[in-house]
Amino acid sequence: MSPNAYILLGLLLFTIGMIGVLFRRNLMFILMNLELMMNAVGLVLVGASLGGWIEGQLIILMILVVAASEVAIGIGILINVVRLTGRPDVDHLPKAPEESTP
């Protein structure tokens, strides 16, 4: 396949993920759509590797590290939101409480 087909498919998946991040209210699904966007960038880089730039595949490995870190931190934030409000809704986040001295 030509590099252009890979890059166009990556662009389409990135757009779907971007619409999902803006369209959903459930924090769980926002994290999933962020993962979709990172994978789409991987497809674009594989297209670049077919065009002769093999370092693109190294950058996919770096994106993998970033994605793993991001999902760990994101699920930590999600657990805190569910603990505070009882549901993972980003439109009903509580205001930051004033720091109370123990």
Partner: peptide
């Protein structure tokens, strides 16, 4: 790993669907 992490988070927190999930 990552899908399993999502599934474990769903299982631990007993997440249900939101009524108004779409904007």
């Amino acid at each position: 790993a990552i899908v399993v992490l999502f599934l474990v988070a769903i299982m631990v927190m007993d997440l249900r669907r939101l009524e108004s999930d779409f904007d």
